[in-house]
Design a protein around this nucleic acid. Structure first.
Lengths: 96, 96
DNA sequence: CACTCTGTCACGCGATGCGTTACATTTGGG
DNA sequence: CCCAAATGTAACGCATCGCGTGACAGAGTG
């Protein structure tokens, strides 16, 4: 994405007001996209912060489910009334 | 939600295999919904972990944008080619 | 009164994002 | 070819935060 903007990693880090290493760690995948970083990226390239965070969120969730696979099996599953479930999902859709 | 399941905070914490304080902190809003916690909640009540995390995500993003409002103003905004933006948004929609 | 549940506080541990410094490698221009 | 900028990688310290644990006080109930 950065080459598309004609920016180097060093220049982009300066414009984002962060350390060059910090941006590099994000690009290398050795650090997560924090909300602060997402806000900065959104400001820089016009892509919504929600998009960047959803990427990170899916990644974190995938790892969490993997790490807790055995623990999750021992959590009993309860059934929620359909009325409440539909209300919750409706609330969720409203925030999008 | 918990009363709807007929669970107390203490019982729910036991079933989730976490400390009672930890669950209480989440309910009180003094701690964030981590991916691990979201996976546990999803297992317990059948509501997707993505939903819980989206709630937390919106909260974190709101705070980040507030805290960095002055800093974000100093970040120059660049224009991304429309072809790339549509590609990215298409990729994003595919993951939902 | 005794018991349980709950809310709240403080402490320590581990993980993580970030800045800083430092060093090696690669790339492009004189 | 040589030098400078950019890049990749590593290590250190700091601050923050989620989590477990222990402890204490208040509310509700048998």
């Amino acid at each position: 994405m950065l080459p598309e903007l004609g920016l180097t990693v060093t220049q982009a880090a300066q414009e984002l007001a962060i350390a060059r290493q910090t941006l590099h760690r994000v690009l290398a995948g050795t650090a997560a996209v924090t909300p602060e970083m997402a806000a900065r990226l959104a400001r820089l390239c016009g892509i919504s912060a929600h998009f960047w965070l959803d990427l990170q969120l899916a990644h974190d969730l995938w790892h969490a489910q993997r790490a807790l696979a055995d623990t999750l099996d021992r959590i009993p599953a309860h059934a929620l009334p359909d009325t409440l479930k539909t209300d919750i999902l409706a609330c969720h859709a409203r925030t999008l």
